[in-house]
């Protein structure tokens, strides 16, 4: 188990190193000089040079890469070109919106999908199964940002149960903050729940055909008990994979949903920074999101090993 963890950690480190190189390279080839963008077209050449030196833009590329990576390891993402403030502080504020939103949506999606998938699998081919599968088929087809607009139309504009956008802030209390995240979370969660429910169902149906399920029935377990005691855990492996992938979808999907609800999250930050060509912020936010996804994949790998003893043994 320790060896497995170490091996996964090593692959996590390599992934991060390659990802940071790629992101740095993409930002490097981006056209436009941040210094002249910040000072405008009328800036003097010597002021530009001074600003470049201040931002560290005059250093060789490899040195700038190393100091960027080195800084991030200490939690220092550099200084925003636009606001001249610490990127770390800007991100920290926004993270407290985006991360809770993703986790909220992931929780909702799991809570809806697991029962729905198990229900459909246990009613294979019957009306309940067909109904759930039809609903998920439509759920997959709905773009989440459109769904978000519809939620706003119904629950904020017509019923006035929620506000149409904006974030109450955590200082207004937990429930006020969660309430302003509820519509966005539902918009994110339902299409993902549709996918997850389908994976849960098909994974369970695959397991139901396994020989060991027949062994379980032969020892006197009822169909339901065999499914719970022997089926679920074996069916969890593909489901875990999807859960890990969904986290990255929720983070990314969140970026767009934040636009619909005017939420001050990482998505707003990234779009503002793109239009201001504040590339160091774009770079850092992207790296942070990639880091989050790679970390989640690492945790999913560990979860595999917890579920499946064969993995623990093999590596």
């Amino acid at each position: 188990m320790l060896r497995y963890t170490l091996k996964r950690l090593l692959s996590l480190a390599i992934s991060l190193a390659i990802a940071s190189l790629l992101i740095f390279a993409v930002i490097e080839v981006a056209p436009g000089d941040p210094a002249s963008f910040m000072l405008g077209i009328n800036a003097q050449e010597d002021t530009l040079a001074a600003l470049r030196a201040e931002l560290g833009l005059d250093q060789p590329k490899w040195q700038r890469y190393l100091s960027w990576v080195g800084g991030m390891m200490q939690g220092d993402f550099g200084t925003s070109y636009q606001y001249r403030t610490e990127v770390t502080d800007m991100i920290a504020d926004r993270l407290w919106v985006s991360l809770p939103l993703a986790l909220y949506a992931l929780t909702l999606s799991t809570l809806i999908a697991f029962p729905a998938g198990i229900f459909a699998a246990s009613r294979r081919g019957k009306a309940g199964d067909v109904g759930v599968m039809g609903a998920t088929q439509i759920g997959i087809a709905i773009p989440n940002f459109w769904f978000a607009m519809m939620l706003v139309l119904i629950f904020a504009i017509n019923l006035r149960w929620f506000s149409a956008g904006g974030f109450a802030g955590w200082d207004k209390g937990f429930f006020a903050a969660m309430k302003s995240l509820t519509l966005p979370a539902i918009a994110l969660a339902l299409p993902q729940a549709a996918i997850l429910a389908r994976v849960m169902r098909s994974s369970l149906l695959d397991v139901l055909d396994e020989d060991f399920m027949r062994t379980a029935r032969a020892k006197g377990l009822s169909r339901g008990a065999a499914l719970r005691r022997h089926g679920l855990r074996n069916a969890m492996i593909p489901v875990l994979t999807i859960l890990g992938l969904q986290f990255s979808f929720l983070l990314a999907g969140g970026i767009i949903i934040e636009q619909v609800f005017y939420l001050p999250g990482l998505g707003r930050l990234i779009f503002q920074s793109i239009s201001a060509r504040d590339l160091i912020v774009v770079e850092s936010v992207t790296m942070l999101l990639v880091f989050a996804v790679i970390l989640v994949n690492f945790l999913v790998d560990l979860a595999y090993a917890a579920v499946d003893p064969r993995l623990r043994a093999r590596t």
Binding site: E210, F212, A218, N234, R310
Partner: peptide, 13 residues
Amino acid sequence: MVFQEPMTALNPV
């Protein structure tokens, strides 16, 4: 009851 395929007749986890 005992089955043919011992490799798959037991729950692997």
